[in-house]
């Protein structure tokens, strides 16, 4: 009885693991959001935790940062739409 159970249990134990670190943590995830992002995170932390600090001014900096990201990609999107209307409409 017991050997039969053990035999059956062994059958479901994987003999090899298929753990591909490239799939678990693709390079872009740790390179971009870990390493490349680090100087940006440090700058932001410095704004909010360093001295002298002022919440209003730090918030202004963050707002400016986010507005610029939006304006950059929004502006690019608008430009591409104009190109589409003029040349590929």
């Amino acid at each position: 009885m017991i050997p039969a159970l053990l035999n059956a249990a062994l059958g479901v134990v994987p003999l090899a693991t298929k753990l591909d670190p490239w799939e678990v943590m693709p390079p872009g995830i740790w390179l971009i959001f870990g390493v490349i992002g680090l100087p940006v995170y440090i700058a932001f932390l410095g704004w909010f935790l360093g001295k002298p600090r002022q919440l209003k001014t730090s918030a202004l900096g963050v707002t400016l940062f986010l507005t610029l990201v939006t304006a950059l990609w929004g502006g690019l999107f608008a430009t591409t739409l104009v190109i589409r209307a003029m040349f590929f409409g």
């Binding site: 100087p39 940006v40 440090i42 700058a43 410095g46 704004w47 360093g50 002298p52 600090r53 730090s58």
Partner: peptide, 14 residues
């Protein structure tokens, strides 16, 4: 003074 320090942090990041 705060802006000067914030710009310093940004410069460090850059």
């Amino acid at each position: 003074e705060v802006i000067e320090r914030m710009v310093w942090w940004l410069a460090l990041g850059i």
